[in-house]
């Protein structure tokens, strides 16, 4: 092979690895080298997409490369604990997600909690919703719950694996309505997309997942949302009532945020908080979230920490009474 060709060849790989890899150390005030953003979920999913937006935006704000590293495994435990164990120097951030508040109750070894993190800010919130076929016999949540009460164990739902976020959301909803959680059969699937396919095929009766995951089918009027488990109705889907309006006092929200290892120096935390706040309130972020149909919800560091504390308590009781609690 000629010299030229081998150079080209090497260059090709360099480009690839520079896109996936990380940089090396230099001296100077923070930040003086590349920063890693750990995403505990796989390439191409919602958390990955949001993480990649933030990596790009932080890179512009900080003037140093920010790379997303997907550390998947253990239902999110691998990435979440890698984020906790990273050196607390501000060069490793983690996109934390809903599962942080449930996995340590469900028997996952060495699963961290929100308390192991220094929270930066909440960047997103997507409430759970219950979706049915457009021609389903139930017009409202009340009718749907009445059908479950009338024939317990007949209706089938899905949305994710057993014990996943949306399974817990529907279990909590049933509990709040004083219906036993096993009155609905939860058919485990690998996520919202295959569940929606099963729903369209008529193999299950309803899906519990977030609104953005079903947005195309809602807009295309092939599916209908009975309820959204948020505090207020969503601006994009103003016709869908909340669970509270339907008389069930229940809120279930999937959220995402950014966090640092606990011991990170205060001045670095403060700097990152300022930068993150300005990104979170930028029109570019609003535009991105709107186009992706992701719910925009910003909480600052202290509000976010309080929110996570409340979340931890809320889901603890759901995990316990749905029978998913397990000692690690």
């Amino acid at each position: 092979m000629s010299q030229q060709k081998s150079m080209l060849f090497a260059l090709g790989w360099l480009v690839i690895f520079s896109l996936t890899g990380a940089g090396c150390g230099q001296q100077g005030p923070y930040p003086n080298r590349s920063i890693t953003l750990i995403c505990p979920w796989a390439v191409g999913g919602g958390t990955d997409r949001v993480s990649r937006f933030w990596a790009d935006a932080l890179q512009k704000e900080l003037g140093k490369p920010v790379t997303v590293v997907n550390r998947t495994g253990g239902s999110g435990a691998v990435g979440h604990s890698a984020g906790v164990r990273a050196r607390p120097d501000g060069y490793t951030l983690t996109t934390i997600t809903f599962e942080l508040c449930t996995m340590h109750r469900m028997g996952i070894p060495a699963a961290p909690t929100y308390d192991d993190y220094q929270c930066l800010l909440q960047i997103n919130a997507d409430p759970a919703a219950i979706l049915v076929q457009n021609d389903a016999p139930w017009a409202t949540l009340e009718e749907f719950l009445a059908a479950i009460r009338a024939e317990p164990g007949k209706l089938k739902m899905s949305g994710t694996a057993t014990g996943g976020a949306w399974d817990l959301a529907r279990a909590g909803l049933l509990q709040a309505a004083e219906i036993p959680t096993d009155a609905v059969i939860w058919v485990p699937t690998e996520g919202a997309a295959p569940s929606l396919h099963e729903l369209l095929g008529g193999h299950i009766d309803a899906v519990c997942c977030s609104i953005p995951e079903a947005a195309q089918n809602l807009e295309g009027k092939t599916l209908r949302a009975l309820v959204v488990m948020s505090e207020e109705r969503l601006a994009d889907f103003p016709d869908v009532p909340t669970a509270r309006e339907a008389g069930v006092d229940w809120v279930a929200v999937g959220w995402r945020g950014l966090a640092l290892p606990k011991e990170t120096p205060a001045e670095i935390v403060q700097l990152l908080e300022e930068k993150c706040q300005s990104i979170a309130h930028s029109s570019a972020y609003r535009d991105f979230m709107q186009k992706q149909r992701f719910g925009l919800k910003i909480r600052d560091s202290s509000e976010f920490t309080d929110f996570l504390k409340a979340q931890d308590a809320q889901w603890h009781s759901v995990v316990e009474s749905a029978g998913y609690a397990r000692a690690p």
């Binding site: 998947t72 699963a111 014990g163």
Partner: peptide
């Protein structure tokens, strides 16, 4: 995936998936 029980993982979380 059904019951959330870890199988043949020997307590390691790398093997959970």
């Amino acid at each position: 995936v059904m019951g959330g029980v870890p199988r043949y993982t020997f307590g390691s979380f790398e093997l959970l998936d």
